[in-house]
Design a protein around this nucleic acid. Structure first.
Lengths: 227, 227
DNA sequence: CTTCAACCACCAATATTCTCATAATCGTTT
DNA sequence: AAACGATTATGAGAATATTGGTGGTTGAAG
């Protein structure tokens, strides 16, 4: 994890730097706002930690400029300014969190992780999970209620598609495009057959069905019982 | 914005509820953890605010269960437990923020906005909406006043057409072209029949009608009662 | 040679779409 | 205001489309 710290107090900055590095983070330090801005705009970070009262431009101003440059990296304001007004200002400038000094390093790190979890999470999760159905894209294993299920390649691909877009309705053309790479419309019911065998393996023995038919449209994977 | 508040202290919960509602938020309240869980798992919120020390299951446990159910809604822990250990526990349970009582409502709301700003980015589901009627083209779900409505393929297509051109009058030939792909004029009243069944599902139980007839022309979807 | 995944063709069950006959409504003219 | 014709609404059932499921064929891998 790469982190930018903009802070002029050498004690605090080294305290933070050392702490973060002990958790395998790469830390860039800036001791004033102007230098901080150069870092912030030129490199990509996972999180930025900004003090407010620093030489050059203030942390608030810096945060604003970062957002004006369309950089969405999570920002934590870390400052001794503890009034509600200052906190509101911080959030208005586009900060994601505001932590008042003195602070516990553990709390700072927990907040960093929380922010980071959120920005990563949406993208890659090795295990897709809906209810008690799990698909591990690393080991390619599928389980329902901890019972392992053996899927063929095509079944797996279809399930992965539906599972990673839970709630989204796929029509047959779309499924064909995603699985076979081209759109052949109809003349065949391959998809129906594969869906059928998927259902046998995944839904048959469970009262809570996961694969639903949207008649006239296609199929969805959803935890809600079909309407 | 729809918010769940799980809090047993009536003073705090009404304080929060009134505050949020003055900012146009819809607030659901739960006074203990078990009821809170039911709400959290059955409805969709933009943010959930959890106290820790509540009857039934604790806020920490509740947060864990929410995450185990793959619900990514931002969670703020709001509690008087102010030790670093408790904070760490909160974040470990999957919370996004942790605010200690006593707190300023303004700060709480700023944190809600900050979380919401970020979680909105990832989640864009194009929803057509007129008044309390919503059509989600990804999940193909249609709701009126949060009540889910089941439409057939043709009904859905017609509604989508009207909804995405709210206020525009479509004559039958135009509707036929858009839905069936070619213009067959008259000799049939299929469209009337489908409009009729659409109305039964969408307008029948509501005093505010949305589908209107322009005699001699065709149909419009509009929120204004027609002249 | 055997096995198994992938695909295809078909049937029965079910849901949807459409036709048609009739009732209700609207606009216009008397 | 009443009456008329044109237009639209509606219910029922017939016609059609969609889908779940089964069994069989192909072709590739071991």
């Amino acid at each position: 994890m790469r982190i930018l710290v903009v802070e002029d107090d050498p004690k605090i900055s080294s305290f933070v730097k050392i702490g973060l590095e002990s958790y395998d983070c790469t830390v860039d330090m800036a001791y004033d706002g102007t230098i901080g801005e150069k870092f912030a705009l030129s490199r990509k970070y996972d999180v930025m930690i900004l003090d407010v009262v620093i030489p050059g431009i203030s942390g608030f101003e810096l945060c604003k400029r970062i957002r004006n440059n369309n950089i969405l990296t999570p920002v934590i304001i870390l400052t001794s300014l503890d009034s509600v007004e200052d906190k509101l200002t911080g959030f208005e400038c586009g900060a994601d969190d505001y932590l008042v000094k003195p602070f516990s390093f553990q709390e700072l790190f927990a907040r960093i992780k929380a922010l980071n979890r959120r920005s990563k999470e949406a993208f890659v999760s090795p295990v897709l999970k809906v209810l008690d159905l799990e698909l591990d894209s690393i080991t390619r294993k599928v389980r329902r209620s901890d019972r392992e299920i053996n899927l063929t390649a095509t079944e797996y691909k279809i399930l992965e598609l539906l599972l990673s877009n839970k709630g989204r309705v796929f029509d047959r053309i779309l499924i064909a495009e995603k699985i076979w790479g081209f759109s052949f419309n109809s003349g065949t019911n391959v998809i129906d057959v594969h869906i059928n065998s998927l259902r046998k393996k995944i839904d048959k023995d469970f009262s809570q069905k996961l694969i639903h038919t949207k008649k006239g449209f296609g199929y969805v994977l959803s935890e809600e019982p079909q309407t």
